[in-house]
Computed example of a mutant assay.
Amino acid sequence: MAQSPVLVDLDAANFEELPCCGVVNEAHSGRCDKNKWLKTYLKKGLRAKVLLGSDGRQCGYIEYLPGEYAWRGVEARGYLFIHCLWTHYKRNQNKGYGGQMIRACVEDAAAAGMDGVAVVAREKPWLASSAIYLKHGFAVVDSAPPDYELLVKKLNPEAANPRFKTGWADRLKKYSTGLTIIRSNQCSHIAKFADEIAQSAEQDYGLKPTIVQIKTHKEAQNAPTPYAVFAVIRDGVILADHQISCTRFHNIMQGRGARPDSV
């Protein structure tokens, strides 16, 4: 009988051997950036766990930290905040692995005396949908445009709910001219997408993008989108508020009337 997957905590001693997001190449720029980010936020209470099968292969990953350090557009002090919840490969889906990781987070929150666990969810890529959290006792307490939901599983019924930041339109105004790419090191996959889009923008559309590197949790919490850690903005309009491929970037640009080799 196959053994159940085991959750292994990542720390400074093992995250080189257990890459958090399935990026195996040790020289991958995004992986190197993520490891530096991990070292910084492990000191602030971040917990990152890899779910390993009996064959030693990764089945999943979860990452969470105290809400005051969240890299999303939220105010969640007093809660553990989940950044990422992944089940790797379709063969590992619908086996309860997501629930196993969520329960571990809730147990950590209880052990630390936190008010509960909070998370941002949506139905698009790069975030888990609300359904899995609702299944495990979370409730929606806030929403933000265009389709983000903030969910919480309370351990302290008297605690105030976490909430999304507001004023999205005001924060977007500073990106009203030209093409801007917002990026960060919180996700190891961002570097590849951001670099490819920046190169394509300049080579194919004659647009030299402004690169905005989010360096701190405070900057992330005050970014122009709830997801915070990645965005592509042109003349004050959000073209993408999560990681997209270069092909998707081309489709968006051409859908807005741009053509390669034209400004």
Score class of each variant (00 low, 15 high):
Leu134Gln: 11
Leu134Pro: 03
Leu134Lys: 13
Leu134Val: 02
Lys135Phe: 00
His136Leu: 07
His136Phe: 12
His136Val: 10
His136Thr: 03
His136Met: 05
Gly137Tyr: 00
Gly137Val: 03
Phe138Lys: 00
Phe138Glu: 00
Val140Trp: 00
Val141His: 01
Asp142Cys: 05
Ser143Lys: 12
Ala144Asn: 05
Pro145Met: 04
Asp147Met: 05
Asp147Lys: 01
Glu149Asp: 10
Leu150Met: 13
Pro157Thr: 08
Pro157Gly: 05
Ala159Ser: 09
Ala160Cys: 02
Phe164Cys: 11
Phe164Glu: 02
Phe164Val: 11
Lys165Ser: 15
Gly167Val: 10
Trp168Val: 13
Arg171Tyr: 05
Arg171Trp: 04
Arg171Asp: 15
Ser176Arg: 09
Thr180Tyr: 02
Thr180Ala: 14
Ile181Asp: 15
Ile182Glu: 15
Ile182Thr: 14
Gln186Asn: 14
Gln186Tyr: 03
Cys187Leu: 07
Ser188Met: 02
Ile190Gln: 10
Ala191Arg: 14
Lys192Val: 03
Lys192Leu: 15
Glu196Ile: 02
Ile197Ser: 08
Gln199Tyr: 12
Ala201Tyr: 06
Glu202Trp: 13
Gln203Asp: 07
Gln203Lys: 13
Gly206Asp: 10
Gly206Val: 14
Lys208Phe: 00
Lys208Met: 07
Pro209Trp: 00
Thr210Cys: 07
Ile211Glu: 06
Val212Glu: 14
Gln213Pro: 08
Ile214Gly: 04
Glu219Pro: 04
Gln221Gly: 14
Gln221Val: 08
Asn222Lys: 13
Ala223Thr: 03
Ala223Cys: 06
Pro224Met: 10
Thr225Pro: 12
Phe230Tyr: 13
Ile233Val: 08
Arg234Gln: 13
Asp235Phe: 11
Gly236Cys: 08
Gly236Gln: 04
Gly236Trp: 10
Ile238Cys: 13
Leu239Trp: 11
Ala240Gln: 09
Asp241Ala: 13
His242Gly: 06
His242Val: 12
Gln243Thr: 12
Ser245Gln: 09
Thr247Gly: 06
Arg248Cys: 05
Phe249Ala: 10
Phe249Pro: 14
Phe249Arg: 11
Met253Asp: 01
Gln254Asp: 02
Arg256Glu: 03
Gly257Asn: 05
Ala258Phe: 10
Arg259Phe: 04
Arg259Ser: 08
Asp261Tyr: 09
